[in-house]
């Protein structure tokens, strides 16, 4: 259990203070440190250089009734640490959120803050936000370069990459994006550079959302 204590310390959650929802990324079962090589249980070497995503519509419920309005999109850069949302209502028993930016915001024109294109999460040659950016090196790939550049986006059929997720809340409210699991996604065995809306991007978006789970 040692690494989860590390996780807690590093991500600054304290179990005593106000209720926080925390989402961090892990690599080799440790909080990810971008730019650092890690050897995982299977003896693969992995390094993540970038890891960012848009978290949209974060919303808390009690018995299925919403306690909060859906939050505006938040840009999470996992290289800077875990994301912490501090205003979880006391009675909340479940949470939902999505990864990505919905079509309404996608097509609304220039926006500021987390949605400002200066953040590097907007495609320039074809309009649309990049929902997820993961750039990594891994010995899992039997290629010379071992590198993965994965920019997932696309908001309209048939290549919509917005994905929703919901959890019953436990006491810890600690969630993780398991990068070992994501980087082992089957699609990466065939393609390592994904930079536009496509069928492959929709598959990888499924793999990405499946890699988010509660820390027990």
């Amino acid at each position: 259990m040692k690494h989860w204590i590390f996780f807690l310390v590093l991500f600054g959650n304290s179990l005593m203070a106000q209720k926080s929802f925390i989402l961090g990324a892990t690599l080799g079962n440790e909080p990810v440190q971008c730019g650092k090589w890690v050897v995982n249980k299977q003896n693969d070497s992995l390094q993540v250089n970038r890891c960012a995503m848009y978290l949209s519509n974060l919303q808390f419920f009690e018995n299925g009734k919403p306690l909060t309005a859906p939050e505006k999109p938040i840009l999470i850069n996992f290289c800077n640490g875990a994301f912490e949302f501090k205003q979880v209502p006391q009675n909340a028993d479940s949470v939902t959120f999505s990864v990505g930016i919905d079509s309404l915001i996608q097509t609304a024109g220039a926006m500021g803050g987390d949605l400002d294109p200066v953040n590097g999460m907007y495609w320039t040659w074809q309009s649309g936000y990049i929902h997820v950016k993961v750039e990594a090196q891994t010995s899992l790939l039997a290629s010379e370069l071992h590198s993965i550049v994965c920019h997932l986006g696309g908001y309209s059929a048939p290549f919509n990459t917005n994905r929703m997720k919901g959890f019953k809340l436990n006491d810890k409210m600690l969630y993780r994006l398991n990068l070992d699991q994501f980087l082992a996604a089957e699609s990466f065995t065939t393609v390592r550079k994904i930079m536009s809306p496509s069928l492959l991007a929709t598959k990888l978006s499924d793999a990405f959302i499946d890699s988010i789970s509660p820390v027990r």
Partner: peptide, 11 residues
């Protein structure tokens, strides 16, 4: 490729 005038200049 561009769906909004605001986003055009990025290209």
């Amino acid at each position: 490729a561009i769906h909004h005038l605001d986003m055009q200049a990025l290209a």
